[in-house]
Structure formats: C-alpha cells, structure tokens
Simulated assay, not measured.
Amino acid sequence: MSQRNYRAAIIGTGGIAHVHAQAVLGSGRASLVAVADVDAGRAAEFAAKYGVPRSHASTEELLREERPDFVHLCTPPHLHAPLAIACLEAGVTVLVEKPPTLTLAEFDALAEAESRSTAHVATVLQHRFGAGALRLRRLAEAGELGRPLLATCLTQWYRDEDYYAVPWRGTWESEGGGPTMGHGIHQFDLLFSVLGPWREVTAVAARRARPVDTEDVSMALVTFDSGAVATVVNSVLSPRQTSHLRFDYEHATVEVEHLYGYTDEDWTVTPAPGHDEVTALWGRDRSERRSGHSGWLAAVLDALDRGEAPPVTVADARRTMEFIAALYASAFTGERVRTGQITADSPFAQKMDGTGAPWEKVRNP
C-alpha cells in the first residue's frame, strides 16, 4: 500500500484543536497547511505556534483558497453539521469532533450530503483505535473469549460550574445534550465497537447539581443483538473520576480503567477456570502507545491510502447517535426503546430532548 503526504487543515482553533495539530504534525504523513477561526487573532496565534503557513477568518475562505485533502472540524458542536456539509459540498473530506451533530435528523442530513459528495465524513472517536481495543476485538472475533455475556461502561467525570460558564455548554441548542452526548460517548462508542449492534435501551436521566438545561447524569440498561447485556453510566458529578469498561465473556473478564486515554498497562484480563490460555493470548503484541488522536489519525490515513471511507464511518457513528437519542427518549418517556424505533418524524430525532426534559416541564408548567 503506497502512502502519500496529505494536505490537512483545521477549522476552529480552541482547546481540542491543539491535540489535532499535534497528531497531524506527528504523523509524518500529513502537512498542516491552513487553519480557520472566526476569531482571526486566535487563528493567527494558533498558526504561528504550529508553523502553519496561512490562517483564515472563515470556512468558506479556507476551502476556496487552500483545497485541503481533509479538514479537522474542531468547533463547538452546533456548528458541526453546517460546516461539515460545506466541506462535503466542496469535495473535501471532513473529520468531525464528537458529537458529530446535535440531533439524529442532523446526522441523517450529514449522511445524505456525504452520499452526494466525492468526499467522506468521519467522527473522531479515538478510543476505538488504542492497542487494547484492537486486541480485544481481534480476540473476540476469533472466538478466543467465547460468547459475550455482560458488560459495564462507566464514564464518571467531574465538571464544575466554571466549566459550564462557557456559553455553548450545558444547553440542548448548542451542545445537544449533557454527559450522555459530550462525555460518555467515547466509552459507549468503544463498547459498541466491541459488542456490535445494540437492540434495546431502558434509561433514566436527571439534572442533580449543575446549573444546566441538559442532564448531568444518565444511566441505561442495554441489550445487544448478540444477547449480551450492559449497563452504561454517564456523569459529570463524580469527584473520583474514571472511565471504566468491563467485558465479561464465557472465557474471561477483560477490563480497562483510565481517564482520558489508556495504554496496555490500564487493561487487565481474568481468565475463567480452565481458560488460562487467554492470558497468554492477551499478552502478545503489547504496545506502550496511548489511545488518542494519533492512533485514530493513523487509521484515517491508512483508509485514505486505500481509497476507502475513513473511520469512524457514517454507519458506525449513526449507531452511536441513535443510541443517544434512544437513551433520552427512554429517560423522558419512561418507555423501553428499540433500535429503529426513532423514525424521522419522532420528536427525539429532531431534538435530543424530544418533547422536553422533565425538569423543564416542572419549571415551566
């Protein structure tokens, strides 16, 4: 497989853009040719820091003058869909930070725009690409672990009131949701990448402590097509922060506990009686690399070298976005929600809070 050097650009030069810039510059396979931000001063400062030759004041100007091979979209969430569609219409592949859109309807519009374009759209969900996750999927697909039985997926983080002082945070209109949408998505996307299609969800969501419009904690019970069952917890109220996934298979328990990125040292394997061979299988091909944007970008570039859609593809990301909509629908209606149940005319396809969060109804009877 031949490799080429790609022309990359970044739109939005806030905090997460620095991680993207470092991944591009460290890849050895792409050059950062331009950045854009509505704050021209911040864009120029960012460009100077990373040796980027040009900065622009708008997406339109960047796309018109630079013609990059792909764009990293690092803006606040409410801008993701319109700017990603602009990139696709210009024939430029776009790599969108999570969450890719505010709603399932927006996501389907983005998928439709991709179908009309020669370019692709991919969502940045980097924890799929760490060495441990790759090894787990490989062993599971080979049948070495037996059937998946149950799993737990915990994103218990802490965000204080100062965090929510940023105007676009904590609102349905600009962030799309609370920790379900913007924090736990990394972990349960990894869960889905291992266990496959989810079938049904029963959930609760609550606003317990933060001055936000959205939830600040949610919990869900999930069943999968495989028959496996899982619990998913998403919180921004937890002083001891952790990201913890546990997979119980017939032949072993496989766990990872980390915060914002894992290495092989963060994974543990406990074989079931009579299956000690799993420990040896897990110990092969160990890596010291940390899960993060560099590993994800390498997978993106490999796909582009092959002429394929980069990960995480529209089909993969839609499964995750549909789960978010289903979780909110279950939490706010009290009903169990199955995959495919949220159709285009559902209020939970149009807005993640659907007909309105219960606490909003109490405040505004």
Rank of each mutant, 00 (worst) to 15 (best):
C153P: 02
E66A: 01
A8Y: 09
V166N: 11
P365T: 00
S58Q: 09
A315W: 00
E175L: 05
R199S: 15
F107C: 08
S2R: 12
A81V: 02
L134H: 00
R116M: 07
P271F: 01
A317G: 13
S58P: 01
L221G: 13
R169V: 05
H258M: 10
R159V: 03
Y328Q: 09
C153M: 04
P100K: 01
E173N: 11
G176Y: 01
D285G: 01
M219E: 15
A47R: 01
F192S: 10
E335H: 15
R318Q: 12
G26H: 02
E215L: 04
A203K: 12
V222T: 07
A303N: 03
S174C: 11
A303G: 07
V269W: 12
S58G: 06
G340S: 02
G261T: 12
F46C: 03
Q350S: 14
H120D: 09
G283F: 10
Q350H: 14
C153H: 05
V278G: 06
Q350P: 03
S287T: 14
P53H: 05
T339P: 00
Q341R: 04
Y262I: 00
L237I: 05
P82R: 08
R42T: 06
A331Y: 08
R42N: 09
H275K: 05
F323C: 09
F107P: 08
S238K: 11
F332I: 06
L62D: 02
R135W: 13
E265Q: 12
R116L: 11
A315R: 09
G184L: 02
D285Q: 13
I16N: 14
L195T: 06
P310H: 00
A57S: 12
L221Y: 14
L136C: 03
A131N: 14
V212Y: 02
A43T: 00
A151D: 11
V256D: 00
L62E: 01
H20N: 04
A272C: 08
K361L: 10
A34T: 00
R128L: 15
H244F: 07
G143T: 10
R7E: 04
R246G: 14
V92M: 02
K49P: 00
D345V: 15
P239V: 09
R116E: 04
F129H: 12
P273L: 07
M1S: 15
N5W: 12
Q156T: 14
A131S: 15
E288K: 12
S226N: 07
A122I: 09
D162W: 05
R319K: 02
